[in-house]
């Protein structure tokens, strides 16, 4: 872009919560908005979050300059099925967790070491065979990265992980 003001200022990562009607196509609207306008998606999670299944919460981790982040929120807010948009990064402290399933295969000392490290990371073995484990691990993205990195030397087979889910700290809600 030619000398755009959008490029001025530091790029920051923001975790944004979006409450939407749980209806067909709503995720496509949100994702289409990001791809169509060239915004970045680092991770995105979505699931119904109320007892009647009418509302879903989308947690999206994105990055951009202040102006771009402001645009992302305004653009999300004007989608018709969007009820609320909250910028957790701007609104104070929040907790964010990813979950990962990590499959490790091996025998002997490597298998024992994998189990020991899993314990250190408070990962649980949710499947085990004589020569493999599937570990379940929750935590920050960094923690999961670190765990996967360690497992790569101990027989890592594959990883499945969610993006971040996040809520603000304290009694208030979106």
């Amino acid at each position: 872009m030619d000398g755009s003001m959008k490029e001025i200022g530091p790029i920051a990562r923001h975790t944004i919560s979006v409450i939407v009607d749980n209806e067909a196509g709503v995720l496509a609207r949100v994702i289409g908005l990001f791809s169509g306008r060239g915004y970045n998606i680092e991770s995105l999670t979505v699931a119904a979050v109320d007892t009647t299944g009418e509302r879903s919460r989308i947690t999206v981790v994105t990055s951009g300059t202040r102006m771009v982040i402001e645009q992302i929120k305004a653009q999300l807010d004007r989608l018709v099925p969007v009820h609320k948009v909250g910028d957790l990064t701007m609104e104070g402290a929040f907790v964010a967790r990813d979950m990962a399933l990590v499959k490790v295969s091996g025998t002997g000392e490597k298998r024992v070491e994998a189990l020991r490290l899993a314990d250190t990371f408070r990962a649980r073995a949710v499947d085990a065979s004589v020569n493999s484990f599937v570990f379940e691990l929750t935590g920050s993205a960094d923690k999961i990265d670190a765990f996967v990195e360690l497992m790569s030397e101990l027989g890592l087979v594959e990883v499945a992980r969610t993006g971040a889910v996040a809520l603000s700290r304290g009694p208030g809600g979106l």
């Binding site: 755009s4 645009q71 305004a74 807010d77 004007r78």
Partner: peptide, 9 residues
Amino acid sequence: DLSSINKNV
């Protein structure tokens, strides 16, 4: 439209 504000300028 809030998204028109601060979009370009």
